[in-house]
């Protein structure tokens, strides 16, 4: 948690509002699509049988002899789920001077959770790693961010878990942020995200890219996929340009597919400051 202190300080005061009204929910800070009787007046409506008589505007009834009820704008909460990809590929680069993809994803998760929590929204976490699952349901109580940070610190990346199955557990009408490197079951994940979007959820994909994946070492290596160790390719300097072109095309195609599914897409590189990345994501998806 102490490692996230400077980032949380930098994010103090940042609020994560929605661009549109949220569905009816417990009272919160977000503008709700539900019309109620809160203090902030919006409009009158003719009384209909069944309306609460306490909502009648008695003074207007006395002046105009017509029965109107006062309508006001409701404020609702927006539960936020942060879904993290804990596969083996997220541990790259291991032991280097730079931050790994998993470390950046954890920092982003803590930062986004802190911003959402500061807005009064309940925050929950879903992590698939190895052959196990971490599920922390959305909470608004104090100490939630600390619990999330500690839980993420204890996780070791590994295996090739299905992120789509994890996203399928996320309920509708929530905000869901997916932190992944998009190297796993991408097709199923985008398909599941589109289902979630159709259900009324706000889905944002944060594509975590390692700087070492963009700038390869000059020596000759035998590149091996940590999730599929049987695959090995010789990585020579003369193949770097073709590699970069292929990887760029993949990232471009991935962004288009995410946006085509109705979800948002942000690309974050590990050499970027986490606080800055959080601000960028919040600004892109918020008001």
């Amino acid at each position: 948690m102490a490692a996230h202190g400077p980032m949380l300080d930098a994010l103090r005061g940042v609020r994560w509002s929605t661009r549109s009204a949220v569905a009816a929910a417990a009272p919160g800070v977000h503008r709700s699509r539900q019309r109620g009787t809160a203090g902030e007046f919006t409009e009158y409506r003719l009384y209909r049988q069944g309306d609460d008589p306490r909502a009648l505007d008695w003074k207007l009834l006395a002046r105009s002899d017509r029965a109107f009820v006062r309508l006001s704008e409701e404020r609702a909460l927006l539960p936020t789920w942060v879904v993290l990809d804990g596969s083996a590929s997220m541990a790259f680069p291991e032991g280097g001077a730079t931050m790994s993809k998993w470390q950046l994803a954890c920092a982003l998760a803590v930062g986004l959770s802190a911003v959402a929590h500061a807005s009064g929204d309940p925050v929950g976490v879903l992590v698939a790693h190895g052959y196990s699952l971490l599920r922390m349901p959305p909470r608004t109580r104090r100490g939630t961010i600390i619990e999330i940070a500690r839980a993420l610190d204890a996780i070791v990346c590994g295996g090739d878990p299905s992120l789509a199955a994890l996203v399928a557990q996320v309920p509708a009408r929530v905000r869901c942020v997916i932190l992944t490197d998009c190297l796993g079951d991408l097709d199923a994940l985008i398909r599941q995200a589109s289902v979630l979007v159709a259900g009324g959820a706000w889905v944002e994909c944060v594509h975590v890219v390692a700087a070492a994946e963009l700038t390869l070492p000059d020596a000759v290596y035998l590149a091996r996929d940590p999730e599929h160790t049987e695959r090995a390719q010789v990585l020579a300097p003369r193949a770097h340009s073709e590699y970069r072109a292929r990887f760029a095309a993949f990232r471009e195609e991935t962004a288009q597919r995410w946006r085509g599914s109705g979800a948002g897409y942000s690309e974050v590189v590990t050499n970027e400051a986490p606080a800055r990345a959080v601000r960028r994501v919040v600004a892109r998806t918020g008001v």
Binding site: A219, Y243, F247
Partner: peptide, 21 residues
């Protein structure tokens, strides 16, 4: 000999070449 190994998640984007040097 075989070159040293490098764990690279994006190894799928490396073009096919000879696996020995």
């Amino acid at each position: 000999h075989r070159p040293p190994e490098l764990l690279l998640p994006t190894a799928r984007f490396v073009p096919e070449t000879m696996a020995r040097a």
